[in-house]
C-alpha cells in the first residue's frame, strides 16, 4: 500500500509501457506520444493515478503505449466511458485520446456533451483530416475536394473545424498544437491538466501514409513563422519571422485582420492583446486559416467554471450528510400494514 517515501522524479520513459509501438514509421502520433510522456514527467504526474481512455482509430491505440491505467474502448465512445470513470472516482486524472473521425463523426455527440457538462478530463483530438485505421477515407475535418478511396472525385461535404465546434459546445478550455512542436505541446498539456473542467486540445497530426503533408502549408519550417501565431494570455497577438505581423480588429467590422507593423501607419499599439477569457476573440482566433491569416496555436480560450463530476459528488455528499440511507427503513417508507 501507500508507502510514505518521496517518490523519485519520473522520466518520460517511465510513462512508456513495455508494448511495441505499432504506428507507421514517420506517423505524427509518435511525436505526440513522446510529448505527452515528457509533459507528464515534467508535471510530476503519478502513473497509478492516471487513466488514458480512447475510442477506436490509429490515435486511439495510444493508451497501450502508456505505463498508466488505460482503456481502449469502442469507436467514438471514449468520452462516455471516461465520464463513468470520472463519476465513479473524481480523483483520477483522466485523459481522452481520439481521432478526428472518432470524435467528430461517430462520437460527435459524446464530445459535445463531455464538453458542455464540463467533466474534468483532458480531451486530445489528433486531427489528421483522414480515417487512418480504415485506410484513408476522408473524415469530417477533410477539406472539400479531398480525394480518398471513398471519394475518388473528391469529397463534397463541408468540414467542421474542431476548435470552433468545441467552443460551440461551451468548452471552457480550448487549445491547439502541432505534433512536431513538442515544447509547445508540453505547455498546452500542462495547462490542460491544471484546468479543472473539460480541456479540449486539437493536435494537428500528420498521417504520413494517407494524408501526408496535409498541413505542410503551415507546418513546414520554411513557412511556419509566417503562418502560425502562438498566442499567450496578456501578450500581443504578434507573429512573423521578424515579429512584425499582428492581429487587430479590422476597423468598422467584427473581423480580425492580419497587419504588418510599420506599414500603412500600423504601430504595435494597434495590435490586440490576447485575452484567453474572451470567447468572442477565441472564436475569431480558432477560425483563422492560411494563407490570409495565420493558424492560432497555444491556449486560445480558458475560462474555468465548476466541473460536472464535482457538482454531482457534492449532491451525493449533501444527501449523505443528511443521514446515510438505511435499506430497511427505505423498504418501509410510505404506507405499510402489519399482519399479525
Amino acid at each position: 500500500m501507500n508507502v510514505q517515501v518521496e517518490p523519485a522524479k519520473l522520466k518520460a520513459k517511465d510513462f512508456a509501457s513495455d508494448q511495441e509501438v505499432r504506428w507507421c514509421p514517420g506517423c505524427g502520433d509518435y511525436a505526440i506520444l513522446k510529448a505527452v510522456q515528457m509533459a507528464l514527467a515534467n508535471m510530476g504526474a503519478e502513473p497509478d493515478n492516471t487513466v488514458f481512455v480512447s475510442g477506436i482509430g490509429c490515435a486511439a491505440r495510444f493508451p497501450y503505449y502508456m505505463a498508466t491505467y488505460g482503456f481502449h474502448t469502442i469507436h467514438g465512445r471514449a468520452p462516455a466511458v471516461a465520464s463513468g470513470v470520472k463519476l465513479a472516482n473524481p480523483d483520477l486524472d483522466v485523459w481522452i485520446v481520439s481521432g478526428d473521425g472518432d470524435s467528430l463523426s461517430i462520437g460527435g455527440n459524446h464530445l459535445l456533451h463531455v464538453l458542455r457538462r464540463n467533466m474534468d478530463v483532458q480531451f486530445l483530438l489528433f486531427n489528421n483530416e483522414i480515417y487512418g485505421l480504415t485506410k484513408g477515407q476522408y473524415s469530417p475535418t477533410s477539406r472539400v475536394g479531398q480525394k480518398s478511396p471513398s471519394t475518388p472525385q473528391g469529397s463534397v461535404d463541408a468540414p467542421v473545424d474542431a476548435c470552433t465546434f468545441a467552443l460551440g459546445c461551451n468548452a471552457r478550455f480550448v487549445a491547439r498544437g502541432i505534433d512536431i512542436q513538442a515544447k509547445d505541446l508540453g505547455h498546452v498539456f500542462t495547462r490542460a491538466r491544471d484546468h479543472k473542467g473539460a480541456s479540449f486540445v486539437e493536435i494537428i497530426q500528420n498521417c504520413i501514409v494517407f494524408n501526408d503533408d496535409a498541413f505542410a502549408h503551415f507546418t513546414e519550417k520554411s513557412v511556419a513563422k509566417e503562418t502560425q501565431i502562438h498566442v499567450a494570455h496578456g501578450e500581443k497577438l504578434i507573429y512573423g519571422a521578424e515579429s512584425n505581423k499582428g492581429l487587430r480588429i479590422k476597423p468598422g467590422s467584427f473581423e480580425l485582420e492580419a497587419v504588418t507593423i510599420g506599414e500603412n501607419g500600423i504601430t504595435e499599439d494597434d495590435i490586440l492583446v490576447h485575452d484567453e477569457t474572451n470567447k468572442v476573440l477565441a472564436s475569431l482566433l480558432v477560425a483563422m486559416k492560411p494563407p490570409s491569416m495565420p493558424v492560432a496555436l497555444g491556449v486560445i480560450y480558458c475560462d474555468p467554471a465548476p466541473s460536472y463530476e464535482q457538482a454531482v459528488k457534492d449532491q451525493v455528499e449533501a444527501a449523505k450528510a443528511k443521514g446515510l440511507g438505511d435499506m430497511d427503513t427505505l423498504l418501509r417508507s410510505g404506507s405499510t400494514w402489519t399482519v399479525s
Binding site: 462516455a80 466511458v81 465520464s83 463513468g84 465513479a88 455527440n109
Partner: peptide, 21 residues
Amino acid sequence: TTFQAEDEIAAACSAIGASYA
C-alpha cells in the same frame, strides 16, 4: 450516483467506465 446520459450508448458506456473504476 445517477447520470442522465446523452443517449443509451453513452449510458451503457459510462456505466462500463464506472465499473472499470
